[in-house]
Amino acid sequence: MLNYIWPLIILCSFIYAIISGNIENLNNSIFESLEEVITLSMTLVGTMCLWCGLMEIVKNTSIMDKMTRVLRPILVWLFPDAKNNEEAMENISMNTISNIFGLGNAATPAGIKAMESLDKSNMDKRKLSDSMMMLIVLNTTSIELIPTTVIAIRASLNALNPASIIIPIWISTIIGTLTGIISTKILIKRSKNR
């Protein structure tokens, strides 16, 4: 997709700059953009290291296990047809918790394993099962407790309080996730009634 959009943007900009007489601005902006990425990356790397370091500690403590126990009843409600599939439930909760803690590297493998174990108990192999649909939608909305990358970028751009973005993000991600859950449940119900 970006293989078409990216060159299109650059070529159209060049043509428009010729028409509108902004060609000098355009030329300068090419080199300015490179410089900006350098300064940005240098500050970004610091905050990213801080969070990745802290999350490594989290991964090695019992925080993850405790979260699993808290999440269990919610997951049973979200994935009713998988509640007897122990392997799937385990992977689903690992996936969800990794998403919450922003551990993308751990979330994706767990999610894929969850899909595989859900596939074993899927009655109709040609269709996604209800739980598979829910799992996919939950992974597209993905609740993240500390949006580390965004905070890191804001810090590198000298925001007054880089972390103040947390609350708007929580609100928006919760609304998005709830909407996703409800519309998936409705979709599942409608396809059953047919």
């Binding site: 595989e116 996604l128 649909m133 928006s172 998005g176 909407t179 998936t184 396809s191």
Partner: peptide, 28 residues
């Protein structure tokens, strides 16, 4: 996630995903 399982029918899973995206953008 679809590539993991060999299903043909996605049961329009893309619709709730897009609705959720729109909801979080608009609420932001």
């Amino acid at each position: 996630y679809m590539s993991v399982v060999k299903v043909k029918d996605s049961r329009k899973v893309v619709i709730p995903a897009i609705i959720a995206d729109l909801a979080s953008i608009i609420s932001a």
